[in-house]
């Protein structure tokens, strides 16, 4: 019953209404992080998902964020800050609310995502703004020396959720990977494999837990070369 209510409430969220794919997010215990449920729908995450995001207002609120994430959320090629442009709104909302709730470990971001800086409506606005930003082909790429194997790994372990072209799935909170900077992909893949990210989808952890560093590099390199659009 609880699951059915969750499905109904998710389908009613405006931000998700246009997505063809829908359904409840996976629910499973994440190992090593206090037993929290992945992507539990509660509190301000629900508020932000339910709010009608205003992209014009989001552009103004995002001003502060540009000090790190650069204009339009382009991120940095050296991977220190991710590209946010073109990311799905539900994914952005999930990550911001996870960081400020302490579910995702990111101490650099914490002071800028606090409730005294941005409210649930602001988060919805920022997400609407960023989701509408173009994904440009100038993202950082990997060294290019092991792409074929990276493609095989991607097809075997990643494409089911993130899609053949890395576009993710908004309704399931799976991030777009295409157009992301190689060094950021690699950094987060390592953190997820090592159990250091905090809010990883257990299925994602499972998919790459046996990966060597070379495997992570190969698959991140492949992903960084997917068509950005």
């Amino acid at each position: 019953m609880k699951t059915r209510l969750l499905v109904v409430s998710l389908l009613a969220l405006p931000v998700l209404a246009s997505c063809a794919e829908s359904g409840p997010p996976p629910r499973a215990e994440e190992s090593g992080h206090g037993g929290q449920v992945w992507n539990e729908m509660e509190g301000e995450k629900l508020q932000a998902l339910g709010a009608a995001g205003d992209a014009a207002r989001g552009a103004i609120t995002f001003e502060v964020c540009e000090g790190c994430h650069r204009n339009g959320g382009a991120g940095r090629v050296n991977g220190s800050y991710p590209r946010l442009a073109g990311q799905h709104a539900p994914v952005l909302i999930k990550q911001i609310t996870d960081i400020r709730a302490g579910r995702r470990t990111n101490h650099k971001m914490v002071p800028f995502s606090g409730a005294d800086v941005i409210g649930a409506q602001d988060i919805a606005d920022i997400a609407a703004y960023l989701a509408a930003q173009p994904v440009t082909p100038d993202n950082g790429r990997g060294p290019g020396d092991d792409i074929e194997r990276g493609g095989q790994l991607y097809a075997r372990d990643c494409a089911t959720c993130h899609g053949e072209f890395g576009k993710g799935a908004a309704a399931r909170f799976y991030p777009r990977l295409s157009g992301q900077h190689y060094l950021y992909l690699l950094r987060e893949a390592r953190a997820i494999r090592n159990g250091e990210r905090g809010n990883s989808n257990p299925e994602m952890v499972q998919a790459i837990k046996a990966y060597s560093d070379a495997d992570l590099e190969a698959v991140s390199d492949f992903v960084s070369r997917l068509p950005p659009g």
């Binding site: 103004i60 001003e63 502060v64 964020c65 540009e66 000090g67 790190c68 940095r76 050296n78 220190s80 800050y81 101490h107 650099k108 971001m109 800028f112």
Partner: peptide, 25 residues
């Protein structure tokens, strides 16, 4: 550019590239 290692944002995002600020900063 800020200081990436320490998580310092670039000042220019809010205070603008030429430091003129805007209606909010």
């Amino acid at each position: 550019d800020g200081n990436e290692g320490a998580g310092v944002p670039g000042c220019e995002a809010c205070h603008q590239l030429q430091g003129e600020g805007n209606v909010r900063y």
